[in-house]
């Protein structure tokens, strides 16, 4: 049985693919922070792991190919927090502009 039209893009089990790429990387501080935000917000009931997965899956295959793992996770975290009413899209946009104005590197812009 190979014809499974109901399969969504993230359901990768059994597909053809190339060799497993063995290169890895140490996580940077911004990636560790995203991981921590995800775990802590989940623990506080601001969203569920299912909410995160829905956002990740709805981002589509293009996002999977284009963005790194924690880039996709911060996008999903953000979407869930906005949906939960924790802050508004306007607040996010304003803050991202403020952050950019602090300096050109993560070190300068990162805050506390």
């Amino acid at each position: 049985m190979t014809d499974t039209p109901e399969r969504r893009w993230h359901d990768m089990g059994g597909q053809d693919a190339g060799p497993v790429p063995m290169d890895g990387h140490d996580f940077a501080l911004w990636e560790k922070r995203i991981d921590a935000l995800m775990v802590l917000c989940g623990g506080k009931g601001l969203f569920t792991v299912d909410g995160l997965r829905r956002a990740l899956e709805d981002m589509g295959e293009d996002a999977f190919e284009k963005y790194s793992y924690y880039e996709r996770w911060i996008a999903a975290t953000n979407q869930n927090l906005i949906e939960a009413g924790v802050y508004t899209l306007e607040e996010l946009g304003q803050r991202m502009e403020d952050v950019a104005a602090r300096g050109p590197t993560y070190g300068e812009a990162q805050g506390d």
Binding site: N78, V86, M96, D98, G103, T105, A109, Q110
Partner: peptide
């Protein structure tokens, strides 16, 4: 932390500060 700030890094900083 010295690489040019990316869009997603800005989002991480903003989300963290708002939380």
């Amino acid at each position: 932390n010295d690489i040019p700030l990316t869009y997603w890094q800005r989002m991480e900083i903003a989300v963290r500060e708002l939380l």
